[in-house]
């Protein structure tokens, strides 16, 4: 089975975010840490496990500036076979239709049996790109997937519903699945894997080479810190001191002890 996995490089979970002077995005400084979007790491894991079980090839594709090349190398070190880097000029955000259009052009050229994406990006949080990609490809899809099995007719997948409910779904191939975090345990890259990754092929394509992008469907006009919903009382002091004050407040003020 040939599996194409879309991975996005996003600012690290613990990265300090600073809003840019135009207030349209964050400042992408040299020292800002980036990592593979968490659900995408799980999508890659699911792809590698399918390959372990059924053979085939795992190709990773990422749309992003030069730095995204590192996310691709990381995926290759974990066991992906090849990479496609659709290079953009900057890390400025694109909307899901624009990103899916680029991914569709790459996917059409690769003709995979299955495309996996994460269910949502941690930075933009649209939760749409995989579903839009399926529509552009004209393929069926399923979202928030927690299990993937190959069957004679195609796939049987487990879809997460809200509040601890699930559902199985059967789909023909080719198809697009959006993968939820926790689908499996993530593997680590081995030293051998890291060494091998250096020689695995990564195809660089400038985004513009793939044809005209659709006009922006969404425009981010202003980025700002969210206003608090509650008046938070911050307790300050050493650990023992704040602990004693909190116990006092929970008892006398909030009356929850």
């Amino acid at each position: 089975m040939k599996i194409l996995t879309a991975i996005k490089q996003v600012a690290g979970r613990d990265a300090r975010l600073r809003i840019n002077p135009e207030a349209t995005w964050i400042v992408e400084e040299e020292d800002l840490e980036f990592e593979i979007n968490e659900p995408d790491a799980y999508a890659l894991e699911a792809a590698l496990e399918l390959k372990d079980r059924h053979g085939g090839e795992v190709v990773v594709v990422s749309v992003g500036p030069e730095r995204a090349g590192r996310a691709i190398r990381e995926a290759l070190a974990k066991g992906a076979d090849r990479g496609i880097h659709i290079e953009t000029e900057s890390g400025a955000p694109a909307d899901p239709l624009q990103t899916a259009t680029l991914l569709e052009r790459a996917a059409a050229a690769e003709a995979p049996d299955l495309v996996l994406t994460g269910l949502q990006s941690d930075d933009l949080g649209y939760g749409q790109t995989g579903v839009v990609l399926a529509e552009l490809l004209g393929w069926p899809h399923a979202t928030i997937i927690m299990q993937i099995e190959r069957t004679a007719a195609g796939l049987r997948v487990k879809r997460e519903l809200e509040g601890g409910w699930f559902q199985y779904l059967e789909l023909p191939l080719p198809a697009v699945l959006t993968v939820q975090s926790g689908i499996s345990k993530l593997r680590y890259a081995t030293l051998m894997g890291i060494k091998k990754a250096r020689t695995k092929p990564v195809k660089q394509i400038a985004a513009a080479e793939l044809g005209p992008a659709p006009p922006p469907g969404l425009r981010i006009a202003r980025v700002y810190a969210p206003p608090p919903v509650k008046q938070t009382q911050f307790l300050e002091g050493g650990p023992a001191e704040v602990a004693a004050r909190l116990v006092e407040k929970l008892r006398a003020e909030a009356r929850v002890l």
Binding site: D123, G125, R219, A221, V223, Y224, P226
Partner: peptide, 13 residues
């Protein structure tokens, strides 16, 4: 944005 760390005003085309 960023899992609730920032907000954004956005406009649809």
């Amino acid at each position: 944005l960023f899992q609730g760390k920032l907000n954004a005003d956005v406009y649809a085309a």
